[in-house]
Amino acid sequence: MRGTVAVLRAAMRDATARRAAFWWQISVMVANDLIWVLFWMIFFTRVPSVRGWDSEKVLLLFAVLTTGSGLALGILANCRRIPVLVREGALDEVLTLPVSPLRHLLVSRVDTVNLGDTVFGVVLFLAVGRPTPLRAAVFVAGVLLSTALLASFLVLIGCAVFVTGDGESSGLGTHAILVLSSYPADIFQGATKMLLYTVVPAGFVASVPARLIDRPDLTDAAALVLITGIFAALAWTAFTLGLHRYASGSGWRRS
């Protein structure tokens, strides 16, 4: 554990070593998120609510999404880089250390650009989320689960590289979950909606946590924990089995 914390601290230092770039990236992301808030605000001037989602709820969803995805793609940045790491043989360094490779990989890269999302999400929650101690607690728990679920999903689809040798399918999966999580899952119906609560668990990334903050519900909470656990276990297993097929890419090119 001490090792993991030390790696994360080093990754954080590394990412913030260039101050100017760091603040620039944070600002770009915050501006980007502001545009989305603007979009939702304009949207809700014409539409009072969409299948139970009014502007306040959607902004809550957006706060959970930006905070959670910011943490997953920012602090656990390697979660979406498994294909490229495997192809380039970049697991070699990790495998020479006496550590759990997946855990080490996940914390060993911080992408500051996504930390801007996290900062924005927290501020947005404080501004429009009517924070009370209970709501704040559910927000924090929901965000952490959302982070874990998103990271697990990205690792899982990234592990396809061990079989296919390319990152194309995982690229598609990354697009899919990020786009689909950005909107209330209830705008979809039928099979699509079913999909968002199972195979591509976008509904659990932001919609369910946002709903929980507004209306704590044991079934929702249990489902969120369960699906996160399932995806985490799947990701772990896929990565561990995948390592058996790891070919170290073209790393150490001059053999």
Partner: peptide
């Protein structure tokens, strides 16, 4: 894939919005 994904998502949002009124 990306085009269809985003289009389906946005159109679902608008259909849901229009459905209301």
């Amino acid at each position: 894939f990306f085009y269809l994904l985003v289009s389906v998502t946005l159109s679902s949002l608008w259909r849901a919005a229009a459905g209301h009124q």
